[in-house]
């Protein structure tokens, strides 16, 4: 059962195709990562999911119905570019954002105070936001995202600009929300965070989906082709071997990428046949970073030309 289905979304700005026929599914109860470098089309996709942008074509389906205001009420959204009203007071801000989601009254007031206490902001509840430190403003922003108990939490580049304490705090919130069975969708260009947090991912590059699925499946699929080897002897013959895709020398170890995952045993046999002393042979795990570079990193990262910037 999918909580959210994105179907053939396309969005063009002037002549630039920001999102190109993107389709993916967000399963119930998952932490879902939208991964790609800056300008790949992540924010545009999220904005279309949030109904902030109208797609040129395609649609976003929430548990069987097209998204609209109903979805907005169930979402807690933390955009990459975040902000608060500087002149508003802390508690007032929380109540205002909850009111926009249709929640008001004593209960939400109590809940806001609970959150403030938990995040050590209760004493500042009557302070103006401009008087808070940047770290405290970030905390407050998290509270506004989750105070109305959303079913979905969408975080766009949540770690950008966060201090280490708040990075941990945010991680706690995410885990807590997952335990409560909420769906968490976040976009990031930081692969190691995505790797640690997500169970499902979709990788987007130049507006196109280049990879999607459960992280576990993806990793096992890609890691099978990867061998890290520690040896004594001469392995130069491997360079011309048809089953080897590439060899990378890391000094102590050598990374060998095979064309076919089923050939690891063949490779090992070959090495032994050629009298290479194999000290360590690991058909090991592959990092998301490596997968990403393999899929999208062929071109110079600095020269990716057209990108969606500030739209």
């Amino acid at each position: 059962m999918y909580a959210l289905e994105v179907k053939n979304l396309t969005k063009t700005f002037d002549k630039l195709v920001a999102v190109d026929n993107a389709s993916f599914e967000v399963p119930e109860g998952s932490i879902f990562g939208l991964i790609g470098r800056n300008g790949a089309g992540k924010t545009t996709t999220i904005r279309m999911m949030m109904n902030i942008y109208l797609p040129d074509s395609g649609e976003v389906v929430l548990r069987g119905t097209k998204v609209g205001q109903d979805f907005k009420n169930q979402v807690g959204y933390l955009p990459e570019e975040r902000g608060l009203y500087k002149k508003m007071k802390v508690l007032e801000t929380l109540l205002y954002f909850a009111e926009l989601k249709g929640k008001s009254g004593r209960e939400i007031h109590k809940k806001a105070e609970e959150y403030l206490k938990r995040f050590d902001l209760y004493d500042r509840r009557l302070s103006k936001i401009e008087d808070l430190s940047k770290g405290n403003q970030q905390k407050l922003q998290f509270i506004t995202t989750v105070l109305h108990e959303p079913e979905f939490i969408i975080l766009d580049e949540p770690y950008s600009g966060l201090d280490p304490i708040n990075t941990n705090l945010l991680r706690e919130i995410i885990i807590e929300m997952k335990q409560k069975g909420k769906v968490i969708i976040f976009s990031t260009h930081l692969m190691d965070f995505a790797e640690k947090m997500c169970d499902h991912i979709v990788m987007i590059d130049h507006g196109k989906i280049i990879l999607k699925g459960a992280l576990k499946d993806i990793k096992s699929k890609y890691s099978q082709k990867n061998v890290s080897l520690t040896y004594d002897g001469d392995i130069s013959f491997l360079a011309s071997n048809p089953m080897v895709e590439s060899i990378a020398d890391y000094g102590n170890t050598t990374g060998i990428k095979l064309k076919d995952a089923n050939q690891t045993q063949q490779l090992l046999r070959l090495l032994l046949d050629k009298n290479v002393t194999v000290k360590k042979f690991d058909a090991n795990d592959i990092s998301l970073q490596e997968i990403f570079i393999e899929l999208a990193g062929h071109e110079d990262l600095g020269k990716n030309g057209k990108e969606v910037r500030n739209v």
Partner: peptide, 18 residues
């Protein structure tokens, strides 16, 4: 201008339409 400049507008648009 303040809402736009302080980037608050996107947070608000996640709740209300423009």
């Amino acid at each position: 201008i303040e809402e736009k400049g302080s980037k608050i507008v996107e947070v608000i648009l996640s709740s209300v339409s423009a």
